[in-house]
Design a protein around this nucleic acid. Structure first.
Lengths: 337, 337
DNA sequence: AGTTAGCACTCAACATGCCCAAGTGCTAAC
DNA sequence: GTTAGCACTTGGGCATGTTGAGTGCTAACT
């Protein structure tokens, strides 16, 4: 019994199954892969693989399909991340063109990734907790309604409306803006809770109320931009790749809509030295994703934000991982510059 | 042959079919609805209805199901928009609470609508072409990178990055901001193409280049906010309501992802005097939606922006229309105030 | 004229039985 | 450790039969 061949068999099974979507039997295996042994030998190997829980048979006389554990082993030890095709590289490169507004870029990136992989692509907004305040603006929308805008040096803009208790004049807002700006410009977003109260305290009593409301609004904006968000694309791929196939897409769509779930999922994925992390089937903490896998990686400064894809466990891991990794690198490069 | 009864039969068929998801036969009809005639009579009526193309039989010995045309007649002439239940009213009311940032509101609204109707809900951002410029801001992100922010009096904030040909100083930006603001503050977004060039022309030659780039950026932002966008929620309902059911959800998801398609669709829906417009099955201009219906209505100033839902043709039109109408009214009220 | 009872007819859905091919596990020989 | 051979299992395809819901038509009834 040769250990290397057993792995080779597992690999062949995974590849064939991913390709054909059908349980693969011993005979088909020896035909499609030149393994140098007979089908009987393969059968013995397969029996062992099944004992170890790496593959399973849907019913007595059918071929075998990989289990979650089998995919895991495949991803960890067998597969090599393939280089991208020229066409793919070109597609990624063309992403460099166009406006480099963060939102635009993320949107185009996620769309690209979903097309490259034929899966649902997801990307977190970059973390901003370490970003600094670049600018703030107060705009009077109505006598008691103030639009508060917070601009970070990362280029992210947050906005929100604050209600004033009393009618407010433009000059008051100008004054307060100057005060706030003077104190918090350049300071980190996550330090705002420490800084804002002191600004309010130093205000002339007449403005104290308004200042309090505005400080509260600013705080909310800062929280929100730390508070994570995401963009996704390619949900239609769920239906396409699963035509006549049993990844019940209902629960998956639910998970995708509950952005909180997805964000947790992405955030919790450990960073892998090889560049991309994979979470397979029941490894996923969320029940609805028990038939799905997530392939993700970090990007940007510190690789703190994540980008990745979501698809059926039966997916082409090597190519998918390659695409995710490549796109993440380009994205880092664009945003970093 | 009584015309009113024929309509009554059509109505019964639609209601039963929507409820049971199964073709409905003559016998079942007389049982569930007290029509005061025998099944044979109903059969005669049904034969006529079929001749007129209002209902159809999937195969010889099955009951009938409504055609698109049948639904159309049902919606136009038979159904009454039902009042909402108390629970639904309560749900809508609770929407009034919370921050009234436009984005937040739209997001919560669309989520609410999808829950009320169990369909996919969609809402256009309010049109801003008539909005006026409230404020602009230029922020230096890097020596040659300027963040341009445009704030409209509607409370909408647009942002984008502009590349400068040469290194730029903060003071230059201040100067230009004052110039631009002086000329365009208060003017309508759609007049910007007329106003901006003159501002550039009046700039001192040293700033002319930069001013041109900034004007271009501002123009892009103005375009973008006229350029429509949308928010949606409830895609998971597609899978749920169609478990074991043949609204092939693939094409629908595709349509939803192609926001352009959806926006066109919504925009093109004529305003209906009764408050909500319905587009049924093949009436939809987009092929992928041939088995889907859209129920939408305008909201906000001039009812120019649209809100609505998307679901299988076999849907509960009266309740859905009621929900869409009610939510749109509340939304108008909130945004209007 | 409109309504009804009755009846022959159609057809999807389900069930039954049969066979086949794919695939396995095991044993004995190499 | 590998292989050939073989008995065994079983889901899927197919032909056939049965059932029941539902129709359309005709002839009688009001």
């Amino acid at each position: 019994m040769s250990e290397p061949r057993k792995l080779e068999v597992l690999r062949a099974i995974v590849e064939d199954y991913v390709h054909s979507r059908e349980p693969v039997g011993s005979k088909a295996l020896v035909e499609r892969h030149h393994l140098g042994v007979s089908s009987a030998t393969i059968r013995n190997d397969m029996a062992l693989l099944e004992e170890e829980g790496l593959i399973a048979a849907p019913h007595t006389s059918a071929g075998r399909i990989p289990t979650d554990k089998g995919y895991r082993l495949f991803v960890d030890r067998i597969s090599e991340v393939k280089p991208l095709s020229a066409a793919e590289r070109r597609a990624i490169h063309s992403l460099l063109e166009g406006p480099d507004d963060v939102e635009d870029i993320l949107e185009r990136t996620v769309r690209l990734l979903s097309q490259l992989t034929n899966q649902v692509a997801v990307v977190q907004y970059p973390h901003l907790s370490r970003a600094r305040v670049r600018h703030i603006e107060f705009v009077l929308l109505a006598p008691r309604q103030v639009l508060v805008v917070l601009i970070a040096d990362s280029g992210k803009v947050e906005q929100g409306v604050v209600h004033a208790a009393a009618d407010t004049a433009d000059e008051e807002l100008m004054t307060l803006r100057a005060r706030f700006l003077g104190s918090i410009a350049g300071s980190q977003l996550d330090l705002m809770p420490q800084v804002l109260p002191s600004v309010v305290a130093l205000c002339p009593p007449a403005l104290r109320n308004l200042a309090g409301a505005l400080a509260h609004g600013l705080q909310r904006l800062a929280d929100r931009s730390r508070d994570e968000r995401m963009v996704m694309a390619g949900t239609a791929n769920l239906a396409r790749s699963n035509v006549d196939f049993p990844l019940s897409i209902g629960p998956v769509l639910e998970a995708l809509e509950e952005q909180v779930v997805m964000l947790r999922l992405l955030s919790d994925m450990a960073e892998d030295p090889r560049g991309v992390t994979v979470s397979i089937g029941r490894e996923n903490p969320y029940d609805g994703l028990s038939e799905a896998s997530v392939v993700a990686t970090g990007y940007g400064p510190g690789s703190s934000a994540k980008i990745g894809i979501l698809g059926p466990t039966r997916m082409d891991y090597p190519n998918t991982m390659a695409a995710v990794r490549a796109v993440a690198r380009y994205l880092s490069r664009i945003l970093g510059g």
